[in-house]
């Protein structure tokens, strides 16, 4: 792991050197350099460490009921982790709600382990409670790697969540008039050097949806989709989305359903 990570960092520094020395006419080279940098990073993705930590948390008895999460139903039956993430978000009859992996984890922690999950909802990203949730989500997503995204809108509440997510995608507010669509509603656009996926297309939605949770090299942090969305809204100058709230699940459903048929590539790695 360490040797691979070191190799990735050397490649990264080389890529940064290419980037730093570039002139306007060398833009293609710059883009290639960044691509090479991202490829090199995949070779030693520290996300593996979070997957392992998540698996341990899944199996370890915890909470007032001193129970593990092994009986948690992620949609394919109690304890079935493999392939479950590829079909999330989905409608769950026991909660009568549509849930993504992180809101479902809260349900299981509360029901099986007797944990007061409000503290987990309120905790800041980057603090231990949120890191535990993200490690769990990383483990669960890794168990769907290379599976096709297959969410269903058959249940009316699932269809409603998709439609609410679509409406949210276009909702403009705040001092900058930003909506998700401002940046993610057109082909081939960039913010600075960062390519922006067009979430309205299958390819764009797949680029957004199938690579989170992801390890972010720039911050040295493991980010889940909930964290990704949280930071999108921060940059949109919106108030803060509540963790695992309906709006976040709705946007996730919009992305996941648009990405249906593409391949789960989590855990990913980002700049």
């Amino acid at each position: 792991m360490n040797a691979r990570l070191a190799a990735a960092l050397v490649a990264a520094l080389a890529a940064v050197a290419v980037f730093g020395g570039a002139r306007a006419q060398d833009k293609d080279d710059t883009a290639k350099g960044i691509e090479a940098y991202r490829e090199a990073l995949k070779d030693g993705n520290p996300a593996e460490l979070f997957e392992m930590a998540g698996e341990e948390l899944w199996n370890k008895p915890a909470g007032p009921k001193n129970a593990s999460l092994q009986g948690c139903d992620l949609g394919l039956g109690p304890g079935k982790v493999e392939g479950a993430f590829a079909q999330l978000p989905r409608y769950f009859a026991d909660t009568d709600k549509v849930q993504d992996v992180e809101s479902r984890l809260l349900t299981c922690m509360s029901a099986l382990q007797g944990i007061d999950t409000q503290e987990y909802v309120d905790a800041r990203f980057g603090t231990p409670k949120k890191n535990d949730l993200i490690a769990l989500a990383t483990y669960i997503s890794g168990a769907s790697k290379d599976k096709p995204v297959a969410v269903t809108l058959a249940h009316p509440k699932a269809r409603q969540m998709y439609e609410l997510g679509k409406r949210m995608f276009f909702f403009q507010a705040g001092p900058h008039d930003f909506s998700c669509a401002t940046c993610h509603g057109e082909e081939g656009r960039r913010i600075r050097m960062q390519d922006l996926p067009n979430i309205m297309t299958k390819e764009g939605a797949a680029a957004g949806w199938t690579s989170w949770p992801a390890y972010r090299v720039s911050s040295g942090q493991m980010w889940s989709m909930q964290w990704r969305l949280n930071d999108c809204f921060r940059q949109q100058r919106f108030p803060e989305p509540i963790y695992a709230s309906d709006m976040t699940v709705a946007l996730s459903m919009y992305m996941a359903a648009n990405a249906n048929g593409s391949t789960v590539a989590t855990p990913g790695i980002k700049r």
């Binding site: 269809r159 803060e240 709230s245």
Partner: peptide, 22 residues
């Protein structure tokens, strides 16, 4: 413009429940 279940009331309810001051 919006599909089944995304009417104004449902959307406003979702917004109300999904954001907090920061």
């Amino acid at each position: 413009s919006w599909g089944p279940g995304a009417d104004d009331t449902a959307f406003a309810t979702m917004l109300q429940a999904s954001f907090r001051n920061a």
